[in-house]
Amino acid sequence: MKGRTLAKMGMLAGGAVALYVFEAMLPSPVPWARIGLSNIFVIVALFVFGLRYALVVNLVRVLAGNLLLGILLSPGFLLSLTGSFVAIGIMGLMRLTLVPPLSVIGVSCLGAVSNNVTQVCIFAFLLARSLLVGPMLGTFILLGVGVGVVTGFVSARIVDKLQLERQSLLG
């Protein structure tokens, strides 16, 4: 089972890196901004294998992705790294504790939004040295909700599939 988990982890990380690199090529209105579809793999890792695995998949994704893009340690990389870790932290918490139960979709929304909010805040306060974040923050929160629903939906399907598989293997 351990070998299988490792293989699945590798697959998730590989997929995440591939999507991450692919996203970087899509046109974007703001430098460094990406849609965030590669989060699907992190969310799947979180729900199927747990928080620790999600963190590993994410680290591989951001490190390998930025290495392949040739922008390791650039501002974009730092934004991506901090944003995604904050997002995973929040998603991990939300998955465990919230009173009205959240499905993958709700968790994914919160993750995407917290990722965006973190990045906008860091960008605004550290890099752009500007306090004019209101409209920008609003835009990115709305974008986050949209993307979060989509990635959440896709992730949910994958999580269902993998869980089913695991059940059948155990049973």
Binding site: P100, S103, I105, G106, V145, A156, D160, Q163, Q167
Partner: peptide, 17 residues
């Protein structure tokens, strides 16, 4: 197994955001 199903919590989160 019902991960795809939208819950009340999801809706609250989405609309709040």
């Amino acid at each position: 197994l019902q991960a795809t199903k939208l819950t009340l919590g999801d809706l609250i989160v989405i609309f709040a955001l």
